[in-house]
Amino acid sequence: MIQMEKNIVSFSNNTVTKDLPVQINAEDVNIYYGDNHAVKHVNLPIHEKSITALIGPSGCGKSTFIRTINRMNDLIPAARCEGTISYKDVNILNPKVDVVQLRKEIGMVFQQPNPFPKSISENIQLPLRFAGVRNKKTLKEVTEDCLQQVGLWDEVKDRLDRSATSLSGGQQQRLCIARALALKPDVILLDEPTSALDPVSSAKIEELLLQLKNDYTIVIVTHNMQQAARIADYTAFFYQGELIEFGKTRTLFTNPEKKSTSDYISGRFG
């Protein structure tokens, strides 16, 4: 508990003072898996160029929610979704939405690093090729640029054509982030990106996210509250499919409105 107090005090100074415009706005979102009502009436604004953390005990619907933002839940036949998530004046949940284009603008990084079993450079160039980039020089430049951004360039520049699976777990995850950056998305969704990594690699990723938020809107799901406290500008607390509380990270951690929020962040359950 003392550990916790200390962490709560060590908020990053990056926390925004003034609210930036809302980029994605979820209104009354309901998600069902068959008969299971997994996400209930969620209203959540996501501000641009800032980090929004979704926290809560496992099974609380936070992963389900984030996977809906770029329609990854389309993969699950039994999943059903109601409500509005507006982004660029379009409801993302509209069946007419071109999910492929949507996912180019809203990228995603997963819990388990999932580089393709190809070379390091191919991993980054693959999405670009599909987006129609053919010029070899551009491809090379973007590859270097993306790897620079995630701080992986110096580590791998001599072995770009080695298999990506030969990298360590932390490097693989940073490669996956670099891969997501290649398409210059507006938003990056991260679904527990550090939970499969060691503490040193996790710290690197956190540092990286703090840099990236200058150019990208970042939404991160994490079950590690300290992580949310360290990097997020806004935090949303999910519990049993409901959004219990949302606000500036500092406010939510130091002065929560709801009892269940304070119970959770002080470690009384979950």
């Binding site: 990854m72 949507l102 990228g107 990084v109 999932n114 393709f116 398409l183």
Partner: peptide, 15 residues
């Protein structure tokens, strides 16, 4: 194959 590969591809805006 693991599900992660497929998700990785789709999340990058591949059809």
């Amino acid at each position: 194959l693991s599900r992660h590969q497929k998700e990785g591809g789709l999340a990058l805006g591949l059809t």
